[in-house]
Design a protein around this nucleic acid. Structure first.
Lengths: 191, 191
DNA sequence: ACCCAGCATTTACATATGTAAAGAAAACTA
DNA sequence: TAGTTTTCTTTACATATGTAAATGCTGGGT
């Protein structure tokens, strides 16, 4: 569990005593390629820490078209965060793109610890703030940049992921069709 | 100050004792149409509560093109939130579109109260979580919906704002040109 | 009441991206 | 290894949206 402890501690310091309680809420869990960790229309209860593998988070519009919102790689938190904190049904899906190893916990168990452990309350605040900052950056990228610029950012942000997952998932992340991504790639190699 | 107290208290309950300390950090402030509350490249220090008026939050890309990210109307918190919590330079601008009345406070003064007031820490967590939920919804709208659908949502989300500000600000919020918004409006009235 | 400046709409044209379908390449599977 | 499936690229065409410029409208200031 040291990896989770380090992950949390880097965001906001956790007391040893708090960690002794906190670590008990986690259980190991694995997902096979294609399996879902989060499904739309369910109310999220579990969150997880991804030890290895790749998970995509995606939305479906009313016509069934999918949009990949985010890729989770090793050492990141997964779960339908909006649903966890709002207790409204998930609109998001999270699906393993490769076999995954993770550690999961119940969000209610976590929040039940907050009254007695202000360091945890602060950790959750820092996490929420960090999520917000990341998301804002992504929002700006989406509206301010061209698809080819977003592609360049993707490549920097997720090195080697491009070799691990199909192009059409990347295209969906960029908000374009595989056709268009192919055009961009062709142009890049020529120029 | 009762309006701010009510605003906070609705998000997460605040002790009377906490409020007695908290309320002292606020000062009244006003902006004239066109003035800025937040400018890009500065590190944000102040946050505010908007009592009346309209403020737009917008980004500029490297070519100077603007994108309106959000409109603040009465009874909402303003400030470069990402910069406040990350202490990185703002990428955002916030500019009064009408004369505005607000109440402002220093963010450092606020955070200095957190160690002694867990209810405030929780309030900040709830605010961060709420911001995240809102932002996620907006992100989904941007990538999953057509411009005309986003226009319909804008009209519901900001009733009567359409009469208060120029069309080109709305177009920028929708991520399209005034030309295109005009086409959408024409189509709507015909159909 | 008039005028001007700011704003909205329209037009014509250019371009980026989408859709659909076919072909090529790569990755699995038996 | 051969065969099957999945993925990627390419082509041809359709469409949404952008750009630039002209026109039309309107409300505030003097």
């Amino acid at each position: 569990m040291k990896d989770i402890y380090d992950y949390f501690n880097a965001i906001s310091p956790i007391n040893k005593a708090t960690w002794e309680v906190l670590k008990n809420i986690f259980n190991e869990h694995s997902l096979k390629k294609g399996e879902y960790f989060v499904k739309e229309n369910e109310i999220a209860k579990k969150f997880g820490y991804l030890r290895s593998g790749v998970i995509r988070a995606f939305y479906r519009n009313n016509k069934g078209a999918e949009y990949n919102k985010h890729f989770f790689v090793q050492n990141s938190m997964v779960g339908g965060y909006s649903s966890l904190v709002s207790q409204q049904p998930n609109k998001i899906n999270q699906q393993a793109l490769t076999d995954c190893e993770l550690v999961i916990g119940d969000f209610n168990e976590l929040t039940s610890l907050l009254d007695k452990h202000q360091d945890l309350e602060r950790l959750l605040r820092k996490i929420a703030e960090g999520y917000f900052v990341d998301k804002e950056k992504r929002e700006v990228d989406i509206v301010l940049l061209e698809a080819n610029e977003r592609y360049a950012i993707f490549q920097k942000e997720y090195p080697q992921l491009e070799q691990l997952i199909p192009q059409y998932h990347i295209a969906s992340y960029l908000g374009i069709t595989p056709t268009q991504l192919s055009r961009i790639r062709r142009y890049n190699t020529k120029a």
